[in-house]
Design a binder for these strands. Structure first.
Lengths: 236, 236
DNA sequence: TCTCGTTTGTGAGCGGTGCTCTCGCTTGGT
DNA sequence: ACCAAGCGAGAGCACCGCTCACAAACGAGA
């Protein structure tokens, strides 16, 4: 244990760097929450932190890099939130846990709309998500896979029908995502994963205005149907 | 018929105005398609059109107003595309028409990604969609309702189950959207509508990268399942 | 046909942005 | 104790949205 705090920075200098970096991200997140990503301004962040704008470039080489950092943090916050909901439902049925995780994702999105828009809305300018975001981005998906796997191992699943033309792709996805699950299930799971974000996005971005009113109940039912489609049943 | 061309402008002046307005929108759409909404610049549009930037404000009072115009156009282009697909499948079964309409929406989105992002991605800055966009925005949804209605009137539908707690909301939505359909159907329909855009968005915004490869087949199957959930069956 | 008010285009300008570069100060490790 | 590396400051570049005062072009009514 001689290198106990090796991840804690070696010198005071490095420590300061981490602190300033965090302060920049915090202030940026503050502005993001208020005005949205488009109005996030490096100069304003620097101003608020009492430094000159050019100093900020010592920490983030460009505005896009700051945004990328915020994106990763947002993915992780969303994942964290979903995982917490998952832990809290340890005893429940898979279907109940599925709904709880989906509701946690929705709650996080409603509570942090601009951050959600940053990750699941249209990607900024000519921006394509760097590889670094991938692990953070997959946390909710992995959770849904885990819930399904748990149900499969405990009671088995109702397998959806799968057209022949989709079978090769289904098997490819299965091999990559969850080789222990049936391809029919994995395919439906991937679709449900995308559809979940359709439901959240429509509510968040105002598409449900004047259409759906009791959105919590509606959402709960819709994601329950998604779970049902994947093969989870409330009883088990 | 004395006022046959009343919508055609009275003088040459008014004619010029709509021509310039159209030219601005066209050039803006060009830039939008290349760089995305965030980089759309009034000055660049004006420059390309050989006018000075301030002149452009005679036609659009602000950048947001230009964007709003583009948004409405995009909704209409998407709606047009979907309606064309609907017309082309006049003889087919409702389920087939459903899939065709969804595929048309997807095709349009893939062909016009930045315009799609403009309407179904995160709304720009502090932007909330003006009332003027509503009719254009609902065209695809109305199409899906129409297909479902046709199926209902011809053969009836398999009614999904509806939990008691959702019944009031389901009946409210039904009264507003399609009083002639069963509330169970309307509820599932609204969810399917949102889920459709989850599927399109995930593909378009790169969430399916390294996950789904044969996206056309996958999409066709997923929206087929949506149709099935609403109660449409391929056979009928 | 002339005229006068409206419409349109011009150019300067304001305050803001992302980003670069050079300059000195501070400081941590040798 | 020194020196290179890290860091902040400030000026500056090119761009942005938007405003304003002004001049030219225009068309409808006298």
């Amino acid at each position: 244990m001689s290198s106990a705090d090796d991840n804690t920075p070696r010198g005071a200098r490095a420590r300061a760097r981490i602190e300033v970096t965090a302060a920049i991200k915090d202030e940026a997140r503050r502005q993001l929450a208020i005005d949205g990503a488009a109005k996030l301004s490096l100069r304003a962040v620097a101003r608020e932190l009492g430094m000159v704008s050019s100093a900020l470039y010592r920490y983030f080489p460009s505005r896009d890099d700051l945004l990328t950092a915020l994106i990763i943090d947002a993915y992780n916050a969303l994942g964290e939130s979903a995982e917490a909901a998952h832990r809290k439902t340890a005893g429940a049925t898979p279907a109940q846990r599925w709904v709880a995780v989906c509701e946690a994702a929705r709650d996080w999105a409603l509570g942090n709309p601009h951050e959600y828009a940053l990750i699941y809305g249209s990607p900024v300018p000519g921006y394509s998500a760097p590889q670094a975001t991938v692990p953070a981005a997959s946390r909710v998906g992995l959770l849904l896979i885990g819930i399904t796997r748990e149900a499969y191992q405990r009671h088995g699943l109702a397998k959806p029908r799968l057209p022949a033309e989709l079978r090769p792709e289904a098997e490819r996805m299965t091999a990559e995502l969850a080789p222990d699950l049936p391809p029919e299930t994995v395919t439906t799971l991937v679709a449900a994963w995308a559809q979940l974000y359709g439901l959240i996005g429509f509510e968040l971005f105002g598409q449900f205005n004047r259409v759906v009113e009791d959105r919590t109940t509606f959402f709960r039912h819709a994601v329950g149907q998604l779970a049902h489609g994947v093969g989870l049943v409330y009883g088990e």
